[in-house]
Design a protein around this nucleic acid. Sequence first.
RNA 1: GCCCUUGUAGCUCAGUUGGCAGAGCACUUCCUUGGUAAGGAAGAGGUCACCGGUUCGAUCCCGGUCAAGGGCUCCA
Length: 662
Amino acid sequence: MSSTRQGSSDHAQDQISITLNDHGATQTLTCPRGITGTDLLSRAAGKTGTPSAPFAPFAMKVNGELKDLPTPLIQNATVEWLTFDSPEGKEVYRHSSAHLLAQAVKRLFPGAKLAIGPPIEEGFYYDIDYERPFTPDDLAKLEAAINDVIQADLPITRHELPSAKAVEFFTQRQEPYKVELIRDFQVPTVSYYEQGDFIDLCEGPHLPSTGRMGAIKLLSVAGAYWRGDEKKPMLQRIYGTSFPTADALQAHLTRLEQLKQRDHRKLGRELDLFSIQETIGPGLILWHPKGAAIRQQIEAFWKRLHEEHGYQFVYTPHVARLDLWKTSGHVDFYRENMFPPMEIEGADYELKPMNCPFHLLIYQSHLRSYRDLPIRFAELGTVYRFERSGVLHGLLRVRGFTQDDAHIFCRPDQVEEEISRVLELTTTLLGAFGFHDYDIYLSTRPEHYVGTLEHWEAATSALSTALTRRRLAYQIDPGEGVFYGPKIDIKVKDLFGRAWQCATVQVDFNLPERFTLAYRGEDSREHAPIMIHRALMGSLERFFGILIEHYGGAFPTWLAPVQAMVIPISEAQAAYAESIAERLRARQIRVEIDRRNEKMGLKIREAQLQKIPYMIVVGGREQEQQTVSLRLRSGEQIAALSVDALLDRLSREIAERGPSTA
RNA sequence: GCCCUUGUAGCUCAGUUGGCAGAGCACUUCCUUGGUAAGGAAGAGGUCACCGGUUCGAUCCCGGUCAAGGGCUCCA
């Protein structure tokens, strides 16, 4: 890549036209043919700032393709600078970070074999095979070594090699994983990057030099299978993250710390919401009174909405004969997620992993007319699924959970309308919890499927039409549908932008057939109904965990387990405090009185830590005037409020299901 | 299930190079009767996760089991 700039006599031919696109602002420059991005950048530096400043460009996009800055430009092109501000820029930056990590690993542990080291959402990792586990101590040493390399400001250069040579080269360097990668690429040439004594197989691009790396932090080490295959060797994955400046890195670490503070497992214990106990078993939840109080509110709200939307409630058992699960096909398709059957009087019974077969049997319990449809059965159905021990996680991944499940049986001409109604119900329900941003996926027909192509097409188009009607933006996940029908998955985004899978709407061509469901049509013949599975919150346990983190434990008043705490200043106000609590209770407000022989400051502090929305302080003055002094969770104070005004305020806020005021 | 880390009072954590275990908070009692995020004192509380081994002696060393945490794989 050296001699493209050598002279031609024709001046015009030596010039190319470069269109610079800098955050949407374009300018066109005439440049010598073969100018490198680096030179181009210094030429444009007047506008973009110092080329080596922390947030300055470190790579570029030439006609949409990612390139290193030193790449010569040999024909007219549109060039876009790559900085840390863009997602692609972050990827390049952190990819270089991964290389720095690998270089440090090879320096400190020469015998280590490198696998892969890509950027990820909030950082990067490198998978490494080494004879002994890395310790936190090793991470500190690696960080020091990385910083040495950054200090040295080694140039990072790109080279190409025929694949055969590259295989030879990496074999010689004893990097078997790299060799395997090159062989699998099946391309004639591969590229590698060099920085000082370190060489890594890589497509690039990368930073121009190691000194451009600002701040880097290694976070953890974990096991990861080579190529994600549990039959392949377990490697060690070192996770890290990097930013252009120490401040930006610190801000990120602070955010991680904040997320840890609102971890639902931590808050669940501190706020006495739920527990998971060894004597009961992993993945099985105890809902404590305060958690249960919140669940009661969620369920009551859920129930009311479903009544309004024409659902009928059903209850079904927790176990059933194994034969039921054979008929439904779960034994064939879902066995590894089911608890083993138990034998009772010679027959095998199975703990239910799903509610659907029961709902089908209720449908089937008598003949249905086309006039009866749609039929909507809803149940808060508790199911048990066997999950491998390593995947359990607080409330978010458990072995026993309650689905807000429903099954809709309808005629083909009703599918679209029903889906649309489900979507409306979903956004209403989730919106009440402050979830208004969704990532929606429409999963289409997979390779293996049941049902006819016409059915699939009709159902898929019903799903997409319904989404469009509801003005919900979605992405298509081609081939990701379940074998029995297409589906919509809705992920909600919480305050921190994290997406959580909650709602799902699935069309099912399989179960109605397995159970030979039918309805009598207008033509007096039997027809197969279409079945729709749907859950809005998914699992109450999981949804509760999401809510805890979403609200950081400061539940909006309508959900708060204790909505108000009456705080008498001294024992002299005990009776008055009781009379206030009495009036609140009469309005269904969840109120407690802190009668302890403690100072008001302590009572307020503890109510605050329990994130109780309203603290009702009553002392001698209030008692005399028959008022209260209100303190909100936000710290706001309202003095001398009449009890009637207090009642109105609380009742209204609860009825409106207002947002969290934490 | 796999890799690594962890398991000491209800909670958060000290600690012992192997010699009958400690703090703060919480709890109980007493004093204090208070004005918007911690008043004071005393007391009670632990087979140091469980099982086994080494040892005169194990909470500590070794092995196993269970559970939790961070990941991988899988998913509501």
